[in-house]
Structure formats: structure tokens, C-alpha cells
Design a protein around this nucleic acid. Structure first.
Lengths: 124, 124
DNA sequence: CGGCATCCCATCAGATACTG
DNA sequence: CAGTATCTGATGGGATGCCG
């Protein structure tokens, strides 16, 4: 991560890099927002809720979110085992900002897609 | 993009997927935030400002941002040529939400990194 | 100066099979 | 049920060289 701890505008730059490094992957944000809306949920429930995530990526992403303290993992040692995932306080504190972005997407994504079409025609 | 145009929570899910699809890459958000703070800027200025982006990725990312109407590209047909990039109204409308995320990162990233260390010790 | 084209590789992530 | 392990293909992105 370059450009961190340098001049003024760079420290914003740096925060953004941290966000991208941590949440720029394919599933983290989606899992956080899903857990934010359904509350506590089990592994296979999450798997179905998201729909097109592989078991592997769900496991990997849940582990890293747990490691960072964004979600909690509770294992109930029953047979068959039951595991429940839930946002932590830290994870919940991120939710509103994600929703702001989602709201922006709802409002502007059609325009963006239209712009993209126009641009494609213009250069062809 | 699955799970779009289905049940209720899915449409938020869907917006988030759109955001991730569009801005989940390595440089888009960073370029938008850079242009947001320095205003109008030339290709090589951007290149230096960001520091560790390759010429190729800067070109590619600027093109896609231009295609989507998030930035404008102005070519001054001088010798040598001069090109200036600038956020559009649409691009600027995204800025505050990015800054909210950056702010969140500033406030919580240390905790996250600490959590990650603790977790690494715990499992070893 | 501000690109584009090509090559190449490392990482990500999907599919599949197996397990406590 | 909730994972782990392995293999493999796709693809994002860097390095380099050339061009108007």
C-alpha cells in the first residue's frame, strides 16, 4: 500500500485503499449486508440467501470477516452441528454506509448503463 | 448477476452487486476520489498523484469511468497534446459516500487490524 | 504527452470430492 | 450440517514496446 503516511490528500487516499483492500473482494460487502438484514443466520441459510456463492468462498469470506471482528461465529455442539453467524457491533457500524452506496446505485445505475451504451455507439 | 428482481431484500442485494460490479475493481474509486480533491487534472499528473498505478490501468479505468459518465475527458489539440480529466456531476454525487467509507476506515481500521492479529494467534 | 497493443503471470474463485 | 482439500480455469493487472 503506497502513498500512505505522506502529504495531506494522501491520508484520505490511504483510507480508501484500506477499504478497497479489505472490502474490494467479491463477497464481503454482500455478506455483511445480508447478515445486516436477516440478522443471525446459519451457514446453509446464508448460502441459499446469496444464491450464487460457492461453499468455498462463503467459508473463506466468513472466516476473514470473523478474523476482523466484523461478524461473530457461534458453534452449537449438537449433532448435527449448528453454526450461526451474526454481525458484531463493528460490523453493524458499517451497514449504513453500505446502504448509502446501495441507494446511490438505485438512483443512478440506470443513467450509468445508458451512458455506457451511448459511449459504445459513439466510439464504434 | 443473480438474485436481482426477486423478493424484497434482494433488491438491496442487487444494488450492492451493481456497486461491486462497477466499482469493485482496484482503481475506480481511488481515481474518483483523487479527481474529487484535486479537481481537473492531466493524465500524467494523475499518474504521479496515485503513484503506483500502471499506465495501462490508468488508461483502462479512465476510459470506463468516462464511458459511464462519471468523469469527463477534454482533449486540447495542441502539440504536444494535453488531456484533462474531471468529475462530472454524476461523479461528484458519488464522492460524499466514498468519503463516508473512508471516514469509517479511519475510525475502525486499527481495531480491525488488531482483531486480525488476535485471531491469528488464537488459531495457531 | 497521452496513449494503445501485446505478452505474461499471479491471484482469485469455481467445481469436485472428501470429512468430523 | 458445516465445513476442508485439491485441482484447474479464468482474469485482472503488470511490464514492455510502439505510435500519433
Amino acid at each position: 500500500m503506497k502513498n500512505c503516511s505522506e502529504k495531506k490528500p494522501e491520508h484520505l487516499n490511504c483510507s480508501i485503499r484500506q477499504i478497497l483492500d479489505r472490502f474490494g473482494d467479491k463477497w464481503s460487502i454482500l455478506i455483511i449486508s445480508t447478515l445486516g438484514h436477516v440478522g443471525k443466520q446459519r451457514f446453509n441459510e446464508l448460502n441459499q440467501q446469496i444464491g450464487d456463492i460457492s461453499q468455498k468462498m462463503l467459508t473463506v469470506t466468513l472466516r476473514s470477516l470473523e478474523a476482523d471482528g466484523l461478524i461473530s461465529r457461534t458453534l452449537y455442539p449438537e449433532i448435527p452441528p449448528r453454526v450461526e453467524y451474526e454481525l458484531t457491533e463493528l460490523g453493524r457500524s458499517l451497514l449504513p454506509h453500505i446502504e448509502q452506496l446501495a441507494l446511490w446505485a438505485e438512483q443512478h445505475m440506470k443513467t450509468i448503463l445508458k451512458n455506457r451504451e451511448l459511449y459504445a455507439q459513439k466510439i464504434s
